[in-house]
């Protein structure tokens, strides 16, 4: 028979000492959950601080609500994808992923797996099979119209597997309750990404997080160099085929 004891620590905060088997699943509302689960560090120190266990959870679904496709959502996940072992399955992505970018990021192209499904039921089935099989390291799933039962089912499957699983949905669904344990809203900013933590196992996150692309280590691109101050617009280049125009003027 195990006992619970409530003691008062020096700071005046009551601290609960629990049997070690359940300690990780109970936490105070003001604290961040420290479940004994595996995480993959996101590669963004500022973001890691705001995530329970300092990283993307291996067990459980993470919901990313994005304003539109192409705001830097994969760039955000790129450091984590680099750390994850095994293949990365892209399930129903909105556009064709470009392999050249992937190689440019220093990731092996053999690790990509692109799955396209025709029907909604097939999509959920495929996601569940990938999670259950466990031979992939990460799963990215794009689907806007999911019923809560389906998400709950995915969440349970993700909890049973050791796969980092992201569900990408439009930002308009931010007000709709969702059973996933970690929800982030992503919005594009001038040189980075604004992240609102909508839901996590921990205290609510009041201030949005701002990540700038220049903090991404080892990245060399127009994102990071050049326009650090104000955006200097370039003139539109003149049309080069002007020969016919000249004759028209005569």
């Amino acid at each position: 028979m195990s006992t619970l004891s409530l003691t008062t620590s020096a700071g005046g905060m009551p601290s609960l000492s629990l049997p070690s088997s359940v300690a990780h699943s109970v936490w105070c509302a003001g604290q961040m959950a420290t479940a004994g689960v595996l995480v993959t560090p996101s590669g963004w120190p500022a973001l890691d601080k705001e995530l329970p266990n300092q990283g993307w959870p291996h067990r459980g679904l993470t919901e990313l609500l994005i304003r539109q496709t192409g705001i830097g959502e994969i760039r955000l996940l790129q450091p984590a994808l680099r750390r994850v072992a095994g293949r990365i399955a892209l399930l129903q992505p909105p556009h064709a992923p470009q392999v050249a970018t992937w190689i440019d990021w220093g990731l092996a192209p053999e690790r990509l797996l692109w799955i396209r499904t025709q029907r909604h039921a097939d999509l959920l089935w495929s996601a569940e099979q990938i999670l259950r099989n466990g031979s992939c390291g990460a799963l990215l799933l794009w689907q806007g119209s999911l019923r809560n039962e389906a998400i709950r089912r995915l969440q349970l499957a993700a909890q049973a597997s050791d796969i980092v699983c992201w569900l990408l949905r439009p930002l308009s669904l931010a007000d709709v309750p969702s059973p996933v344990s970690l929800r982030l809203a992503l919005q594009p900013r001038e040189q980075g990404l604004q992240i609102d933590v909508l839901k996590r196992r921990g205290p609510p996150c009041a201030t949005p997080l701002l990540l700038t692309w220049s903090s991404l280590h080892g990245d060399r691109s127009f994102f990071t160099d050049g326009h650090h101050h104000a955006l200097l617009d370039r003139r539109l280049p003149a049309t080069t085929t002007a020969s016919s125009v000249a004759t028209a003027l005569v």
Partner: peptide
């Protein structure tokens, strides 16, 4: 996993770079 996915989704659904 690939076989299982292919059996249901058809061979065109699974793509590798």
């Amino acid at each position: 996993l690939l076989e299982l996915l292919m059996a249901r989704l058809g061979p065109e659904a699974i793509r590798l770079p």
